[in-house]
Structures are given as structure tokens and as C-alpha cells.
């Protein structure tokens, strides 16, 4: 294991031992190994440096490396926990963990809040929601009249912004999501429950047997 691990560490900066990542997340050691197969494929798609850059992330999401999307950018920024402009394997596993079906709603609610708090002010502000709404309309090639956009924002903030100060804080967000649970659907990836089947090739590289026995 030692030789294998040092080789992996050299090729994949920031690579952490699967057993450690497993202990901090909802993933088993085998599932962390499976995620490493996915990580290797994404991180080697443009530059084979063992790290995922933004272009590689977009390529994996859209199968198109040139596609710019503010939501994908925001997700990338949240995955890039160390703010290095790249995602290492530890970042990747810890961020994906939030999307695991067994992770608490509390963690998912918090991640979604940070996702939409694009400027990192601690509030989801109306101008941020408007910006995201317009981006979504562009992405889906939908056209809405300005007054319809404003009406949607009015309605949303009437429902979510309990103290009507024009911004949504974390407690208002928790309350709003509890009344609109479908908003959290994007925060759970059923794939993560069955990842060793999705990426069976990990079995050939697995250290699980050595660690488990």
C-alpha cells in the first residue's frame, strides 16, 4: 500500500488516503476508491495534472469545455474549498459528500444557501436572485417580460424574506426550504448511493481488501 500510495500522491496533488476521507464522509472506503476513478477521468480530460480545473469541470458537466455557466462556476467555487482555482481529490470527495442521500438536510440546506449567496455576504439578495433567474432564462432560451421577472421576484421574496428587509438570511432560508422541500432536490444525487456499480473499474485498483483485512 505504501508504494501505491506514494505514487498516487505524486501524480495527484492533495490526494488523501481513502480511509481518512471515508471516516469524514458518508462514503465507504470502496466508494471513495470508486470516486477516485471518476476524479481521474475528469482531472485528466484536458491537462493531466491530477487536479480538476474549471474547464475540465465544465467539460464533465456539459460535455463542452467552452460552455460558461454561472451556476457551474458557483458549484466549482464551492468545491474549490482551498480557493486554489483547482479541485483536488479531497475537495472533490468532501463536496460530493453533501450530495449523498444519507447526509443531513441541514448540511444540504447550508450548501444550497452558500450556492445562492453568490457574493458571500451571508444573505441571498434580490439582485443575486434576479441575476440567477436571468441566467437560467438565457440558458433555457426562455423569454420572460421584465414585469413577469419582477413579479416572480416579488412573490419569492414575499414568501421567503420574512422580515421584508430585501434579503434572505440563513434562518429565513431554512424556513423557506422547509415549506418548499422540492428546492433541495438538486442537493441529492441518487448515483452516490450506488457508485461502486457505476464505476466497477475501481475494483481492479482497490486497496479495500488490504485495509479491511
Amino acid at each position: 500500500m505504501g508504494r501505491f500510495q506514494s505514487k498516487v500522491t505524486r501524480q495527484y496533488p492533495g490526494h488523501e488516503v481513502p480511509i481518512v476521507l471515508s471516516s469524514e464522509t458518508a462514503f465507504s472506503v470502496g466508494e471513495v476508491e470508486a470516486l477516485f476513478e471518476l476524479f481521474k477521468s475528469i482531472s485528466g480530460s484536458v491537462i493531466d495534472d491530477g487536479l480538476i480545473n474549471k474547464e475540465e469541470f465544465q467539460l464533465a458537466l456539459f460535455k463542452n469545455r467552452k460552455k460558461e455557466n454561472i451556476f457551474a462556476n458557483r458549484i466549482f467555487d464551492l468545491f474549490d474549498a482551498k480557493k486554489k482555482g483547482v479541485i483536488d481529490f479531497g475537495d472533490f470527495v468532501r463536496a460530493l459528500n453533501v450530495f449523498h442521500p444519507n447526509v443531513s438536510q441541514e448540511d444540504k440546506i447550508d450548501f444550497a444557501f452558500r450556492l445562492y449567496d453568490m457574493d458571500g455576504t451571508g444573505f441571498i439578495e434580490r439582485n443575486e436572485v434576479k441575476q440567477m433567474l436571468i441566467a437560467l432564462l438565457c440558458e433555457s432560451e426562455m423569454k420572460l417580460a421584465d414585469e413577469t421577472i419582477e413579479a416572480i421576484l416579488d412573490k419569492t421574496f414575499l414568501d421567503a424574506d420574512m422580515n421584508q428587509d430585501g434579503k434572505i438570511d440563513i434562518s429565513e432560508w431554512k424556513n423557506f426550504v422547509s415549506r418548499n422541500p422540492s428546492l433541495l432536490k438538486i442537493m441529492t444525487l441518487p448515483y452516490l448511493r450506488d457508485i461502486t456499480t457505476t464505476f466497477p473499474s475501481f475494483i481492479f485498483h482497490s486497496e479495500v481488501d488490504e485495509i479491511a483485512t
Binding site: L61, I70, A135, E139, I152, A160, K185, I186
Partner: peptide, 26 residues
Amino acid sequence: SVPATMNAFELISTSQGLNLGSLFEK
């Protein structure tokens, strides 16, 4: 068409950029 009574976050959450499931599609 999108009704004005729709919740902004419901709309936003339909973005392809937020659908991480596509990371797992080869």
C-alpha cells in the same frame, strides 16, 4: 410559459449547471 406566481428558486434549480448528475454520465 412561466407563471408569475412561480418561485424563483424552483426555476433556478432547473439549471443544467446545477445538475451534478451529469458528472456521472460517461
